[in-house]
Design a protein around this nucleic acid. Structure first.
Length: 118
DNA sequence: GATCTGACCACCG
DNA sequence: CCGGTGGCCAGAT
């Protein structure tokens, strides 16, 4: 029962674990799920995020620490930024300093946190 | 069932 | 610095 095609479920599960005041990147989520090059699928998962799922999608940013969502909805991008700032995640010139706010799960630093950063 | 596309990312020129 | 390209996964047509 490993490696299910339920990529979405894993994405939601992972994002759901991100604590308040922290952020993760699409590529990071993909890597944590065992698919280093599937960041796009992560984005797609969040785009098709079903209603009713309390997933903190706003804590997911692109590799630059920016909100990629503005491509499909500017208002949503605004909302995302508002929420993050409310959670004390500071934006500098429209970006978040990932050095300060990036979050890693426990399992993650077992195998390749360092690897990822290099 | 083939092809396109996407809230992405890294690499190359 | 910017644009193009390949790579990955899943949904849409």
């Amino acid at each position: 029962m490993d490696k299910l095609p339920n990529f979405y479920t894993r994405v939601y599960e992972f994002v759901g674990k991100v604590p308040k005041g922290c952020v993760v990147t699409y590529g990071q989520v993909a890597l944590a799920l065992g698919a280093p090059r599937s960041a796009r699928a992560v984005g797609y998962a969040l785009r098709n995020l079903p209603d009713g799922t309390d997933v903190p999608w706003w804590r997911v940013l692109n590799a630059n620490g920016e909100t990629s969502i503005q491509r499909i909805s500017v208002t949503a991008a605004d909302l995302q930024r508002e929420i993050l700032e409310y959670e004390k995640v500071n934006f500098r010139k429209g970006q978040v300093n990932l050095e300060d706010f990036r979050w890693f799960p426990k399992e993650f630093d077992e195998f390749s946190k360092k690897d990822y950063l290099e």
